[in-house]
Amino acid sequence: MSTIAAEYQPVRVEADLDEPLSRWLWAVKWLLLVPHHILLTALGIGFLIATALAFPVIFFTGRYPRWLFLFSTGVLRWTWRVAYYSYGALATDRYPPFTLGAVPDYPARLFIDRPEHLPRGPGLLLSRLRAFPQLLLLVLVGLVFRLVWWIGGLSAVLALVALTILILSSPAAALLRTGHYPRSQFRSLVALDRWAIQLLAYLFFLTDALPPLRPEGAGRSGGRLHTFLHNRHHRPPGSGAPAVSAR
Results as ranks from 00 to 15, higher is better:
F145W: 05
L100G: 11
E116S: 12
A52F: 09
F59T: 00
L124W: 05
L163I: 06
Y106R: 05
W149R: 13
K29W: 08
P215D: 11
L25H: 13
T3M: 05
R114T: 09
R66C: 05
R128D: 01
A131T: 08
G44I: 02
A15L: 14
T178Y: 06
F145A: 07
L33F: 07
V11N: 02
V244S: 04
A246E: 11
D16M: 08
F69I: 06
R128L: 14
V144N: 03
I197F: 15
A174K: 09
G123C: 00
E7W: 08
S86C: 08
L17D: 11
V157G: 04
P242R: 07
L158T: 06
L110M: 05
F205I: 02
E7D: 14
L125M: 05
A89N: 11
S127M: 03
L192G: 12
W30D: 07
G240M: 05
L143A: 13
P236A: 13
A172M: 02
G222E: 00
E216P: 01
Y95H: 06
G88H: 08
P10D: 14
K29I: 10
F59Q: 00
I49C: 02
G88I: 12
D18C: 09
T41N: 10
S188Q: 15
R183L: 12
G240Q: 09
V141Y: 06
F186D: 03
H234I: 00
V82M: 05
G101T: 13
P107H: 11
L160M: 14
L199P: 08
T99K: 09
I197M: 07
G152K: 04
